[in-house]
């Protein structure tokens, strides 16, 4: 009996280790297979040429990825700039000020929002945000904009990651020990003072982690962005220019025109790039997070 228990314990441990290891392996397998597929074009052109050139002419065999990289970063940056303050404020409100009734109504709605399929956000963006930018916002700043632009992509993306961010931030705020806010309140601090000086500070690593998660999501978001950002491979110079993020490039072109030499390999290189961007981004933020935690010993 004793031995059976010990054996079960041991084998459970081994099996779980195997499964955990498998997910690690999966990451490697995906990375390596993308790299293998991208190798033909990497052999033909230097890495630097692929990354720094703005020319995208598959017919002539010119593959410059700079517009795609910049578009991806640009759209995601705008999305997070819009979504982060909004979600912080609503998270704080729901967690500290809102009555039970209000949070009981809001929280399921937020969960529901994050469950709506991206294509619906895309259609909605095309029907409302794009005309809004073309007719109302863009004419104030530039001569012409079709509305299919960086700004439209950023806005739709912001709306999409907002519910995700809010629900993660709510978790972050709720996990703060109550004693610490009580300590501040009992000293006579107002709720807002407590939020500013204690809550935000204490949950800073959590806020960073939430941001990283939603930016990673933003990098990879495909269909909704593809529908509103214009898909022209140029380097966007203003918010109202069209752009063409990496996921949109792959989704739009994979399976078509694969007869062109190196085209498939170029697309795979794009996928590999996206993969690397997300890995590097996560690694950097993990490192900074460690630094922050050490520095402030939170």
């Amino acid at each position: 009996m004793k031995y059976i228990r010990a054996f079960k314990d041991k084998s459970a441990r081994q099996i779980m280790l195997g499964i955990a290891f498998f997910s690690l392996l999966l990451l490697l397998v995906i990375g390596v297979s993308l790299l293998l597929k991208a190798l033909p074009i990497m052999k033909e052109k230097s890495l630097w040429a692929l990354l720094s050139s703005g020319n995208w002419k598959p017919f002539k065999g010119e593959f410059g990825f700079l517009p795609y990289i910049i578009s991806t970063l640009y759209v995601s940056l705008i999305a997070i700039i819009i979504a982060l303050p909004l979600s912080l404020l609503s998270g704080i409100y729901l967690c500290t000020y809102a009555s039970k009734t209000i949070s009981r109504i809001f929280e399921p709605v937020i969960d529901l929002l994050s469950g709506i399929p991206p294509v619906i956000y895309g259609v909605w963006g095309t029907l409302t945000i794009v005309p809004l930018i073309a007719n109302k916002i863009a004419p104030r700043y530039v001569e012409f904009s079709s509305g299919f632009s960086v700004l439209a992509g950023g806005l739709v993306l912001a709306i999409m990651i907002l519910p995700l961010l809010i629900s993660i931030l709510l978790e972050v705020f709720r996990s703060l020990p109550k004693e610490i806010t009580d300590a501040s309140l009992s000293l006579g601090a107002t709720k807002w003072q407590t939020v500013k000086k204690v809550m935000l500070r204490k949950s800073f690593p959590g806020i960073i982690a939430a941001t990283v998660l939603s930016v990673s999501r933003a990098f990879g978001e495909t269909i909704a962005v593809l529908m509103v950002c214009g898909n022209i491979p140029i380097i966007p110079h203003s918010l109202f220019d069209a752009c063409y993020p990496l996921p949109a490039l792959i989704a739009n072109n994979y399976g078509e025109m694969l007869s062109m030499p190196n085209y498939e390999s170029a697309l795979m290189f794009g996928a590999f790039l996206l993969f690397i961007i997300i890995v590097i981004f996560n690694a950097i933020s993990r490192l900074t997070l460690n630094q922050i935690e050490k520095r402030f010993s939170l």
Binding site: E179, A183, S184, S186, K197, V198, K202, F296
Partner: peptide, 18 residues
Amino acid sequence: IDVRKKMGLLAQRPCPLP
């Protein structure tokens, strides 16, 4: 706030602010 300012509270577990 005036009420709490009159009372210094010492909690069960020390709870330094971050």
